[in-house]
């Protein structure tokens, strides 16, 4: 097995991997593989598949630096060993895990629902207040409902917060003035 053959093999293999990832589960034309099994410096090629043996001594085996480099490159491309090991849980622990997950989901749902109901009641209170205002003073109501027609986003808009600010009213505030264009 010459280095040239090995590098061509490497090229084919990389092509196969790229095509597999590119069209997942689509019809991928398999590139024909060499017929014989052979082994070179820790890389075991079998018919139609590839297996990288890690941790095998490569230095004292008389391997050339090119081969070692190639093995390193192959190990970077191979995706099989890249994925972390699957957690091995016994059935009992898996069931516990599922139960914990369900409880967590329940807690999150309860949080979400309570928040939604709170917001809903707040909104309803706002509606009631607006209705009262309309009854009491239609002019004030019209003013309150008036939307600014300016297309410019007002720079003085405050980010909505859940609680009122510590300083309820900043009396020293003045409207920002835009620099005049000369």
């Amino acid at each position: 097995m010459s280095l040239h053959q090995l590098s061509s093999m490497f090229w084919r293999r990389s092509q196969t991997i790229i095509s597999r990832t590119a069209f997942q589960s689509a019809a991928v034309s398999r590139i024909p593989q060499p017929l014989h099994n052979f082994e070179v410096s820790g890389v075991k090629f079998t018919h139609g598949s590839l297996e990288v043996t890690r941790g095998k001594r490569t230095k004292s085996g008389g391997s050339s630096p090119q081969k070692i480099r190639l093995v390193n490159m192959l190990s970077l491309i191979g995706r099989v060993r890249k994925a972390p090991y699957r957690l091995k849980l016994s059935y009992e622990d898996l069931l516990r895990h599922r139960t914990i997950h369900r409880a967590w989901q329940l807690v999150k749902r309860q949080e979400r629902e309570s928040r939604n109901t709170e917001l809903m009641t707040q909104y309803q209170k706002i509606q009631v207040a607006c209705d009262e205002l309309e009854k009491a003073s239609p002019e004030l109501f019209a003013q309150a409902m008036d939307k600014p027609k300016s297309l410019r986003f007002p720079p003085e808009y405050r980010i909505p917060t859940e609680t009122p600010p510590n300083v309820s009213w900043d009396s020293s505030w003045k409207k920002a003035t835009l620099p005049q264009v000369k």
Partner: peptide, 28 residues
């Protein structure tokens, strides 16, 4: 559930699973 004696004796549960499970049981 682990049938093999070897696996059963060397098996270790993830740390903290039992405590979290008890809490989950309480919530549920």
């Amino acid at each position: 559930s682990l049938k093999s004696k070897k696996f059963r004796n060397t098996y270790l549960s993830p740390i903290g699973l039992d405590g979290a499970f008890r809490e989950a049981l309480e919530i549920l």
